[in-house]
Write a protein that binds this DNA or RNA. Structure first.
Lengths: 141, 141
DNA sequence: ATTGGATCAAGAACTATTCTAATTTAAATT
DNA sequence: AATTTAAATTAGAATAGTTCTTGATCCAAT
């Protein structure tokens, strides 16, 4: 144990988040996701993370991403059957998938909107998670 | 061409829907989906369709499902990275995934709701498709 | 009847992901 | 500081859903 408390490392990432020990690999992957908010796939993370961790394996990237997801540090986002993407934005939001460029944009809800109020849910339903995906194009104007 | 128009077959399925020729295999798969609205996977369709088409192959089931989807006759529904499911309900609707039983329920929107109005979309966005997925439980009682 | 294009069947191939087993690292304890 | 223990990492094999390939079959139009 260091004597400095949570923010004990040079890169500003705590030793532990939500009960998950932040190893070097997890730190770097988390930092990368925070940096470029491009919703990369595991493989894209793998390729880019090699700059800081040349010996990392793809399995470790998957392991780390899964650990981060399960401890609610990042979110996993799926579009159809495409490779999973990973997102550091924990606010409730949807995803707009621009078909022309393949890029993904976070979409906020307008203030005061509670999605479940708008749906005809079966009675006694407890919703744990909502996912909203939009597909379309940014029309050139 | 028969002389009876669209509904020319005993089973009530037209020879062609949305420009897709309805072969025997496509008919049977479509009929099956219409019958049990249980959002089956391709493999579930494969197993059940063997009763009426004992020689059908899994590849054909995939081909038929893809053709039906592309001609907007059925919808493909994905939950995370689980196997794709198929749904004959073309009305705009979401899906509630009951974690306890694994079953899927269609969820209608309350009348007068236009989802895109509630979202903070980038300007000049043309939405082609919206997908809404809920995960949770039907609480006992 | 013949031709040509679409459809189907069977199995191989592909790809994203997970698993396995061995090694390394880090933390806790002596 | 050395030892023990558990967790994390690595590399590659395995898995599962889906797609691709090739050859056979069907069907509609000539």
């Amino acid at each position: 144990m260091t004597s400095q408390g949570l923010l004990s490392q040079a890169n500003g990432i705590p030793e532990e988040i939500n009960g998950l020990r932040m190893t070097r690999q997890r730190q770097e992957i988390y930092k990368l996701l925070m940096g470029e908010r491009s919703h990369p796939t595991a493989n894209e993370v793998f390729m880019r993370i090699k700059e800081s961790l040349p010996n990392i394996s793809l399995a470790t990237v998957y392991n780390c991403l899964e650990a981060l997801v399960q401890h609610h540090i990042i979110r996993q986002v799926n579009f159809d059957r495409e490779p999973s993407r990973y997102c550091p934005n924990l606010d409730e939001h949807g995803h707009f998938h621009d078909e022309a460029t393949g890029t993904i944009h976070d979409v906020k809800f307008k203030p005061g909107i509670n999605l479940t109020d708008l749906l005809d849910l079966p009675p006694h339903t407890v919703i744990k998670d909502i996912e909203i995906t939009l597909r379309g194009q940014l029309s050139a104007s």
